[in-house]
Design a protein around this nucleic acid. Structure first.
Lengths: 124, 124
DNA sequence: TATGGTACTAACAAAAATGTAAGTAATGAG
DNA sequence: CTCATTACTTACATTTTTGTTAGTACCATA
């Protein structure tokens, strides 16, 4: 209790919090599909079939599962219209909108470095 | 070729690029561990055992695998010192440093919304 | 009557991620 | 000689994620 290495316990605690916050965030938006789905909803609500068509290679099952998880996690809002054929729309919640810079930056980073690789491949 | 719906082909192309860039980025830093490892290296190089101890619950195997992948992907630099017992240090590359804002923002977001949930749970 | 569109669900299978436990080489301490 | 340390590797088992296929209810159109 007398002497305390600030660089040790302090930073360890801080790191622990960061790890847990990051871990939590990753558990919410990690995985192959979630950010991809969220970024599709950036400009407004889309219906299920629009999402499916706009994300190439996603299956209906995966889209359903991911949307359901994100609805439960408070990232997307689901609205059912009593029409035939059925219409269901999905949109970002306020919480999810706060993540827009994250996927923007990730995507920009991807653009920069994917481009580099392609150049290298071309040059090779 | 005469008329072109700008809102359609244009945005579809743009979205396609975004999807692929995002997909690429996710393939590089997705998964349970990679961002967690990278954020540990933010303040400078760490050796294998330091990383292992600072990330609770990660196994040696996972740490090895993830570090190897990230080394191959140009995200971490691995330096071996010819000592006994062996010393191996890992540090972020320039490419990885560009991702610092991503995990910072994710972590901040996690802090904000993990806190909310805990409050809700307490209140319930 | 048959087909197609919509937004799913369920059963099952395959693939990918992760974990467990043990082993390795070199060397220094006891 | 035995044990500990470091940074791994290997074999195997388990868990999680993802894919495949088929089916459902409702109505419109051909």
């Amino acid at each position: 209790m007398s002497k305390r290495k600030e660089t040790s316990s302090n930073s360890i605690n801080k790191e622990y919090i960061i790890e847990c916050d990051l871990t939590y965030a990753i558990s919410m938006v990690g995985g192959r599909w979630k950010l991809l789905i969220l970024c599709r909803l950036e400009d407004g609500a889309l219906r299920f079939s629009e999402l499916r068509r706009s994300i190439c290679n996603i299956t209906e099952r995966m889209l359903t599962l991911q949307l359901k998880e994100m609805e439960q996690d408070g990232l997307v809002r689901r609205t059912v219209y009593a029409e035939v054929p059925p219409r269901v729309e999905y949109e970002l919640t306020h919480t999810a909108k706060e993540l827009i810079p994250v996927w923007k930056q990730l995507s920009d980073w991807g653009a920069r470095h994917r481009g580099c690789q392609m150049t290298v491949v071309k040059a090779g």
